[in-house]
Design a protein around this nucleic acid. Structure first.
Length: 259
DNA sequence: ACACAGATCCCGTGATCTTT
DNA sequence: AAAGATCACGGGATCTGTGT
């Protein structure tokens, strides 16, 4: 989808982008091949050509940081086809308190499509380990992580940087007409939760953590991790679905030759 | 070369939503 | 309860294409 995207260019919005598609300009290369493009002046065309060739080489180099700055948050989903194969879903649990009242991260769940990893406070949740686990990935997937998980982590672990594209399924799902939180979304998309964590929510995770700390019971921690794992893994499945729907909603599919 | 009309972008503001 | 992005909405600014 990123190769069909023009709306990051100066003075090009979503409308002009669609206009290009209608005229048969559906990729950067086709834009570059033309000397004139209906809808923009030749001055603008030249500027766009320069910008596009820079972007083209950034794509060749799979420069995730470049693209995270290029696209506004709400359009970062367009990078999923290029960076999704090297993406990491993130879901944190906390002790439930506001940060200025002693709130802290208890669990950071990470899933790259193959392996699930959980860093647990008091065991292996350290800034260094987090950095190690995050490094090398090109995209992060969260559910409203933009307003919760990522700022929370950033403030607790000062040196962490999330300078890669962020596919936030909370806002994305809303855009394709799906309402509600993660659990409800799973239900609507037919994603089944494991019996042991069915009906649980974030507050249950808080209670499980407190139980684990007070009674030091390993099985409560395992239960908490199981819950977090379901959340984290499901983000990946949902990302695939939402990406397809978002792409379809742009109308681009009508202009891509079916072969 | 110039002016106009319509298209499009862009920048507030305030309300809304979900996360633990 | 706090944070952050988005949406809807509207008005102002800018650009494009057309006609004279």
């Amino acid at each position: 989808m990123i190769r069909h995207t023009f709306s990051f260019l100066d003075g090009i919005g979503l409308r002009l982008e669609r206009h290009f598609w209608r005229m048969g300009i559906i990729s950067w290369q086709e834009f570059l091949n033309r000397n004139f493009v209906n809808g923009i002046s030749s001055d603008k065309k030249e500027m766009a050509d320069v910008a596009l060739s820079t972007t083209l080489s950034a794509l060749d180099g799979r420069d995730a940081q470049y693209f995270s700055r290029l696209l506004p948050q709400r359009e970062q989903w367009r990078l999923f086809d290029v960076f999704g194969s090297n993406a990491l879903s993130i879901d944190i649990e906390t002790n439930g308190l506001p940060e200025d009242k002693g709130g802290f991260v208890t669990v950071v769940g990470l899933y790259n499509g193959y392996d699930y990893r959980a860093l647990v406070k008091g065991i292996d949740l350290t800034e260094g380990n987090l950095k190690k686990e995050l490094s090398g990935y090109s995209m992060i997937i969260t559910f409203y992580g933009i307003s919760f998980d990522i700022p929370f982590l950033s403030r607790k672990f000062n040196s962490l940087r999330f300078e890669i594209p962020h596919f936030d399924l909370g806002f994305a799902s809303k855009r394709v007409g799906l309402k509600g939180g993660l659990k409800r979304l799973e239900g609507e998309l037919g994603i089944i939760r494991d019996e042991s964590v069915k009906g649980m929510d974030g507050y249950d995770a808080v209670k499980l953590w407190n139980l684990y700390r007070r009674r030091n019971r390993e099985d409560t921690l395992e239960h908490l991790l199981k819950y977090n794992m379901e959340d984290t893994k499901n983000l990946f499945k949902i990302a695939e679905i939402i990406y397809k729907r978002l792409k379809a909603s742009t109308g681009i599919n009508e202009f891509i030759s079916h072969s």
